[in-house]
Amino acid sequence: MRLKGKVGIVTGSGSGIGRGIALAMAKEGANIAIVDINEEKAKSTLQEINQYTEGMLFIKDISKKEYIEEIISEVVGKFGKLDILVNNAHASKQALFKETTMELFDLSFNTGFYPTFYFMKAAYPELKKSKGKVINFASGAGISGQPTQASYAAAKEAIRGITRVAANEWGPEGINVNIIAPIALTEGVKQWRQSASELYEQMINNIPLRRLGDPEQDIGRTAVFLASDDSDYITGQTIMVDGGSIKIY
């Protein structure tokens, strides 16, 4: 129960990696606010959370800035504090670089970068009180420059940039700010595996550990570590939870 008594917000937690993180944290004792745009999936995650701790539910489009301060306020109003902020939500579409449009950049930045930025700003006063933890998300697509991922890679690398700045500025106040860059077997990847089995096998063969990460056991447990006291001397870092696919320093 490494997170017993802690309060966290996890965006994009109706499914996939966000759901895995929310469940892993709840099983370690944290009360979790679920934030997602898909009501059915978010309610399913909430039901599971409530088997272990107490959850809250927000069906909000966080590309709309006005909802973010409202979410922070309601979480603190209910639980009295905020210890953990996980900025996981992000939507994007693939396109060749020469075919990438401003609309694709707007989608990626408005659902990923800007919500991360605004959540961090809104949560800062509470995180300062609790000496809390921020966990943001990057991607190997940005680090390696994956083809067809220009808008996604740009937003993810921008998130890495502000994470390092916040780590430097907020470190003296006891706030840790880190990044997870994952590869995970999400619902979308499972569907893709069925339609592109050969490409899927090629991807697996390029991962030294020869498998994709489990959203809860691999990605979620890493998030638990970064949210716990065990990571108190780690900040500003990108943690590659990708089976060894990318080695950075």
Rank of each mutant, 00 (worst) to 15 (best):
G5L: 05
G5M: 04
K6D: 14
V7S: 12
T11L: 11
S13H: 12
S13L: 10
G14A: 06
G14L: 11
G16H: 07
I17A: 09
L23C: 05
A24V: 02
G29Y: 03
A30R: 08
I34H: 10
V35Q: 10
I37H: 14
N38F: 07
A42H: 07
K43L: 07
L46D: 08
L46T: 05
Q47Y: 05
E48I: 14
T53G: 13
E54Y: 01
E54D: 15
M56T: 09
L57G: 09
F58D: 15
F58I: 14
D61K: 14
I62L: 14
S63H: 15
K64Q: 15
E66W: 01
E70R: 10
E70T: 12
E74F: 02
V76T: 13
G77E: 12
G80C: 04
G80R: 03
L82M: 12
I84H: 10
A95K: 13
F97A: 15
E99W: 09
T100I: 03
T100R: 02
T101V: 04
M102S: 05
L104Y: 11
F109W: 06
N110E: 13
T111C: 05
G112N: 01
G112Q: 01
T116C: 05
M120C: 14
K121F: 04
K121W: 05
E126P: 00
L127W: 05
G132E: 05
I135Y: 07
A138W: 01
S139M: 06
S139D: 11
A141M: 14
I143C: 08
S144Y: 07
Q146W: 02
P147S: 06
A150E: 02
A150P: 00
A155E: 02
A158L: 02
I159P: 01
G161T: 04
R164V: 03
V165D: 12
P172G: 08
E173M: 06
V177L: 13
I180S: 14
I183Q: 15
A184S: 08
L185V: 01
L185G: 08
E187Q: 13
S195W: 12
Y200V: 08
Y200R: 12
E201A: 09
Q202D: 14
I204N: 09
N205T: 02
P215F: 00
D218A: 00
G220F: 00
G220Y: 00
T222V: 06
A223D: 03
A227K: 06
S228W: 07
S231M: 07
I234T: 15
Q237R: 04
T238P: 07
V241D: 13
G244K: 02
